[in-house]
Design a protein around this nucleic acid. Structure first.
Lengths: 346, 346
DNA sequence: AGAATCAACTTTAACGTTAAACTAAAAAAG
DNA sequence: CTTTTTTAGTTTAACGTTAAAGTTGATTCT
């Protein structure tokens, strides 16, 4: 690929390789005219630095890894784009890896990232007591958590994270349903090993308590953030329960779509027969005909933020001691699926 | 990161570095017992090869680049996943880059990919007479086109590609609308610099000709595969035309969603007042309430196929002379948006 | 004027891995 | 039992870049 080397330039100008290197990297110790000559010739010859050699000596790859569950989940593309844009600004490239919800593949991926020499990792998929954390620490690999975090206060204190204010978002969503008069509410939860689901659950439960609403055990189902499991869970709830719920709180929009399909399959209308609230505001929640009431967040901003934190640590090793925990605010977006525009608040 | 080197292992076992290298890479010239000892110790010490050193000497990075317009376009995630999975199987990692529809950023990206030393590139974004092609040829970088291709027969003959049978797909879609009795059809085209849009247009136009349907000039609009431009174009068509179209053929589902929003904004119902057919069958085309009639394709398979072709070339330099042009078949998926289930064929 | 400082370089070595050329001893062939 | 071949290694050098230490010759200080 890159044929022209520093040595070729050095030979042509009768200087040493080091001088060329210094000239091109803006380091001192090179005369003004010599520097210009070198820079011009480098451009003319189409010189491209060899990143293998650079990396070998500097131990920096200018690449970061981004670990997500699956890029086909509409939650991730915007996050990935944010990370890539911010990383690109700083000259870093991004390697994307899908765990497909498998714990062991996450470990394999992290090991590979280490071997490939990425400078840092952004992890969006941690679960509580995830061995990935220990692995990263052991490898002394800088990392930032995004979306999900570690709740254990002993660990959390020294781990960077960029997360949503899941508590108040979920509290807001649950309150909204209660205000609309619902008392028979089912909760379609995400992966309860993930902080997002844990916190969203606690926010919702607190809201329910405030409104005197209680949720039967079998109306709370961990569906692991997958649409299929949400579909099946809701189908079960709707067919088996003598008194079916009048509202469903789904902990992400993806699962909300599963709920929706299950409701339609049971000949129920949304929102007339069943109110539905999601979480995330993925791109098609706003499409006419879907119009999902949900909790909005800015994934692009989230991606940019975590990339920025990671890169600032990479650039400035002093900052590695500091710990950033960014909490991003959310908004309730009221659309048609909750029935607000049918009745409003009583 | 990777602290343990081949030399550390060599020192501990009193052998040379080369022997360790040969032992670990399964090369001959190492005794059975010595080989086992080396492998065991390497595992025990947690040896990870340094890819910079490896790459420096072998000029192989075991990384490929995938260039797309934008990962948030729902067309790409499944393709990207297919590429990553197949690449992963062969030990290659994938670097994803978004051009954001900008020609110049594509060139920058390709140059950077070259500098970073990727072994090959998968390009999903070429336009006709794209300078990227010459750049890649000049860099002697192996590449495969996916989704879009170069039509110029002088060039096409030696460029690998994996594309859809866009002609027959689009022909099928257009025929479907004609069969349903539509004669007033508008075409919302993709980027006419891309082979996909060119071929889809020709397939549709041929079908229209067969049915004696003619399309007024201002009912054919290049909307560059963006939802916004499709929305605006259709709004214009619907407000300005005295006799508005009764059907719209959109060259991708994304634009079809824009058409949909524009129709609803003009108080038209789909399919009762306006029939709509898309292309691609992105994930939410099938959602209840959207139910877009469209042309299905298997992006995951497409991704796997192009990754396979690229990697087989990388692995086997003899094969570099051969040229693969894979054409993937499509299916018409009839849902509600075209009105078939309202009237059927007359 | 002589010592100290500085600018503009050069030389050497190192990063970790592997290809190529070499060596020594054992096994096979004649 | 000598010669050839094979096996199991070793040594050297190279990939392209840069950090560290060294070498000039000119400039400044006292």
């Amino acid at each position: 690929m890159s044929r022209v080397t520093i040595k070729d330039i050095a030979r042509k100008l009768n200087v040493s390789a080091t001088t060329v290197s210094n000239a091109l990297n803006g380091k001192p110790g090179v005369g003004k005219s010599a520097r210009k000559k070198i820079q011009d010739l480098a451009r003319e010859m189409g010189y491209q630095p060899n990143y293998f050699a650079k990396g070998l000596v500097s131990r920096q790859s200018y690449a970061i890894g981004l670990v997500i569950t699956n890029i086909t989940d509409p939650f991730y593309p915007e996050l990935a784009l944010g990370v890539q844009e911010k990383a690109g600004e700083w000259g870093y490239s991004t390697m994307l890896f899908n765990t497909n919800h498998k714990q062991e593949s996450q470990e394999t991926i992290i090991r590979m990232l280490g071997a490939k020499g990425v400078d840092g990792v952004i992890l969006s998929t941690v679960r509580q007591d995830d061995p990935a954390i220990d692995l990263l620490d052991e490898m002394e690999m800088p990392y930032v958590l995004v979306n999900r975090m570690i709740l254990n206060p002993r660990k959390a204190g020294h781990i960077d994270s960029v997360t949503l204010d899941n508590y108040s978002g979920s509290h807001q969503a649950a309150t909204h349903l209660c205000r609309l008069g619902h008392t028979r509410i089912a909760v379609i939860a995400g992966d309860m090993g993930a902080s997002t689901a844990i916190i969203r659950t606690s926010g919702a439960m607190d809201a329910f308590k405030e409104w005197g609403v209680s949720i039967p055990d079998n109306w709370f189902v961990d569906c692991g953030y997958t649409k299929d499991r949400a579909f099946n869970a809701v189908r079960k709830i709707l067919t088996r329960s003598a008194h079916r719920p009048t509202a469903i709180l789904a902990q992400d929009d993806n699962m909300a779509l599963g709920v929706r399909e299950a409701a339609y399959a049971a000949d129920l209308r949304i929102p007339e027969d069943l109110a539905l609230v999601g979480f995330n505001d993925i791109s098609f929640a706003s499409l006419i005909g879907i119009e999902l009431t949900t909790i909005r967040q800015d994934q692009h901003h989230m991606g940019m933020t975590c990339a920025e934190i990671l890169i600032s640590k990479l650039q400035n090793p002093k900052r590695r001691g500091l710990c950033n925990n960014v909490l991003i605010q959310t908004d309730l977006v009221i659309r048609k699926s909750c029935g607000f525009y049918l009745n409003g608040y009583p």
